[in-house]
């Protein structure tokens, strides 16, 4: 079926079967491979993108649900010359090890900071509930987000 939507500001019309997932559209149809598939069961958050400005797991959205929607992926927030402040903070704080969870972490972190002014490190940790890092690099991730949120620095445990 035909679906019209925008990705990173650019209009697309695609023709895909209704059982196609958003993350498949992004990675396979549009070749935007920055969005990762981790668990494919809506738990790990590696596939997090924004739909109309809200963080969602793109493995749990069907392509036909996209009609008229604006999607933002990790490719849409910055590039290597002009990093998004959240990307810059992740680099600055060494908030990644293998990097697999990073695109989802950053997309969720942007949503978290935009919607919740005055975040402290506990609220950041709770806000990352839906994102799993198997390198267990959470501490630096929380520090990176806190630096953007201008929150209190995370306590060292």
């Amino acid at each position: 079926m035909k679906v019209s939507f925008k990705v990173n500001g650019q209009a697309h019309e695609i023709d895909v079967p209704p059982n196609t997932l958003l993350v498949e559209v992004l990675r396979e149809t549009l070749e935007l491979t920055g969005t990762h598939v981790g668990c494919d069961t809506s738990q790990c958050g590696a596939c997090t993108v924004h739909l109309d400005g809200r963080a969602v797991k793109s493995c749990t959205v069907l392509a036909p649900q996209l009609d008229g929607v604006e999607v933002t992926t990790i490719e849409g927030i910055g590039d290597s010359e002009n990093l998004h402040p959240m990307q810059a903070a992740f680099r600055e704080c060494h908030a990644l090890q293998c990097g697999f969870c990073t695109p989802g972490m950053i997309m969720q972190a942007i949503d978290l900071v935009e919607k919740n002014p005055g975040l402290d490190s506990q609220a950041i940790r709770e806000g990352l509930e839906g994102n799993i890092c198997r390198c267990t690099g959470y501490h630096n991730i929380v520090r990176a987000i806190a630096s953007v949120a201008d929150a209190k620095p995370a306590s060292v445990k």
Partner: peptide, 9 residues
């Protein structure tokens, strides 16, 4: 409920 991404949908 769930996590932020789930609460958004």
């Amino acid at each position: 409920i769930g996590d932020n991404q789930v609460r958004n949908r």
